[in-house]
Amino acid sequence: MWKSCAKGLSVVPEKLCLLQENIQNISRQQIRTTFILKRRTPPLLHKKGGPPKRLKNKHYVYDLVQDTNTLRQPNIDVILTEYVDGLGSKGERVSVKPYFAYNQLLLPCLAVYATPENIKNCDVIVSLFQTINIFSNKTISVVMNKEMPWTLQPWHVKASFRKCGYHVPEDTITMPTNIIQGPNMEFENKEFFVMVTVSIKIKYLEPNS
């Protein structure tokens, strides 16, 4: 028994290449977690278009090519729909073992499969968070005229953003409630808050719903 097992295993690397070739044919979906067998004696050729010849006993002697149940299953990608302790936060794409992913994440609806659509949404979220992070820490200088009178407008802020290398549309900028007018040298080196709306579509934050 053990001898035969060893024999079967020694054949594996050659056959694996064959397997991979077959996997490329997507329409046949060659996913195997089972016994893959091979006839020790191939049956005789039959006539073109005719019925196959009757199998004899010797054609039922099989060699085990591979037992895919004992193979290590590759990790699968999932996108979390909720914060999972020790794994990641909402919208994060993680690669986990298939058994854990199925029983602990996918069945209780804590995650969804990383399908092309779900990945697209996931990317949107990641880039959103990045922009939010950048803007939340940014301090930019708004340079105004010292002699001519002015009132601070959104386009002033837009121009200042542009000088720093950020292209912010004017309608996304929300100015502070109090009106800032100049020239007033007291305002030099003073700070004020400007709100930039990155996305109004908050529902994008939830990849599945």
Binding site: S4, V61, D63, N103
Partner: peptide, 28 residues
């Protein structure tokens, strides 16, 4: 799969059933 195993060159073929491994799980 019902068939035979030839476990050794010099031994006679033995009948063998290759049976799938079953487990209880949940599908949604």
């Amino acid at each position: 799969v019902q068939g035979f195993q030839k476990r050794d060159e010099l031994s006679r073929r033995v009948p063998h059933f290759w049976i799938p491994v079953l487990k209880r799980s949940v599908v949604y």
